[in-house]
Design a protein around this nucleic acid. Structure first.
Lengths: 236, 236
DNA sequence: CGTTGCCTTGACCATACTCAACGACTGTGG
DNA sequence: CCACAGTCGTTGAGTATGGTCAAGGCAACG
């Protein structure tokens, strides 16, 4: 899931990966340490009952849901500072979480977190906001796949990434690194790999964005924003 | 947005539409009364700054986002007991809320609610769960529009409605009333009205579901679930 | 009765999918 | 150092799913 944890997260990071009781209320000490995963590891599997939530410290991840027929839809691409997996407070996880690059995450057992929320209004508010923000992102993706064509969709997603990355200092001047393959993009945008390829080609030829070798460069932002129908409001 | 408010909501309802301070914490009396809207009224408009949240008491509503080109994507269909609009805690609303039938809602100014959440952990937990549930629903709709064909999508949505309605006692034996037009369905499923029509026709001819005159009847559930790839887990 | 909103159907079309093959690059083992 | 496999990106030809445009039916309502 996707939302900046802002202050809380910064505190965690500053302390080198350990939560103190001050972050979570006055009753419990929750010793949470950062864990590092190799690229393409599965961190939490769909239908697992071992429910936890994750806060991404660094790296790229994908949250996806597999269909019986082997298809896969990527629900979200959690980035630095995003909270993942809150739905799994109870019951099985509904999606799998996997790393794309090397990934560093804080893992927190949900029970502890729920307790923390119950006893700490300030934190509860942060969680609410993070969930609400993910709602907004999901709603926007729904618009994307439901009501926009391949070009607009692709453009929109690349702009979203740029916006989200620049919020955490990983993008500047319309330029960022993106380790997603065209196959990943396809599963995010609800298209086929082949068509993603052609669409990226068109965007490149039209001098709008270039996505090559894991490197994204926005060239003509104004026109790109226009054909994408992009309004960054939903990310705030 | 969509999630049962369970206890809190039931309390509100039982008291005939007024919240007491006991529901929301110990500091404030928040006099909230139920408001009734005619069918096809706009209750909250996209981009408005007058931010409130709504709890549906009865009736059908749609939460939608309009695109500049006049297209519209319906994000959610809030039903009895669902919470709507939490994203708008700050900043403009991202979607419009409109009634489909006569609609009775509790309207709560966000500032008050936020305060309530801050001071009442129990309620915060409910809100978190409701948001998390909407996330799950949105994710499932994303799967729907991204990775399923017209038939599966339509079947899936009709099954979801049945499940959600039966949770609040508005559906039994695979049978329920649905006031949505085929045009509404199109905006939910990301299709055109024409194709929705044909798809419903096929589903009827195949003796799977019938949707006629605002009346839905699931005929062959087993087969329907199969072609929809429906798993109700995400609604719990 | 004419208007309005919704459903239905037909003919045609286009966007995006399928299938298939090949090229570029990387890492690995002989 | 080179052959090989594996992954990813690229391209072409043919197809299908769903969209567009257009017309008509039917019930509700003033």
């Amino acid at each position: 899931m996707a939302a900046p944890v802002t202050e809380t997260f910064r505190k965690i990071a500053a302390r080198g990966g350990t939560l103190s009781k001050n972050d979570w209320g006055n009753n419990d000490f929750l010793g949470v340490t950062a864990k590092v995963y190799k690229p393409h590891s599965v961190i939490g599997r769909q239908d697992d009952d071992n429910v936890e939530i994750f806060i991404v410290k660094s790296g790229w991840a994908i949250l996806y849901h597999g269909l019986p027929d082997g298809e896969r839809q990527i629900i979200d691409t959690p980035l630095t500072g995003d909270i993942v997996g809150f739905r799994s407070v109870d019951g099985p996880r509904l999606a799998s979480l996997a790393s794309v690059t090397e990934l560093t995450v804080y893992e927190i057992s949900s029970r502890e977190l729920v307790e923390a929320i119950l006893s700490e209004g300030h934190l509860g508010n942060k969680i609410v906001r993070s969930l609400a923000r993910l709602n907004a992102i999901l709603a926007e993706h729904l618009m994307n796949t439901g009501r926009r064509n391949a070009m607009s969709r692709t453009a929109h997603f690349l702009l979203e990434l740029e916006e989200r990355l620049s919020m955490v200092g990983l993008s500047a001047h319309g330029r960022y690194e993106c380790p997603l393959t065209q196959c990943d993009l396809a599963d995010i945008l609800g298209m086929t790999t082949v068509h993603v390829n052609r669409t990226l080609g068109e965007l490149r030829k039209a001098d709008l964005v270039s996505f090559k070798g894991g490197h994204v460069q926005v060239i003509n932002r104004k026109k790109l924003v226009e054909i994408a129908g992009f309004d960054n409001e939903y990310l705030r």
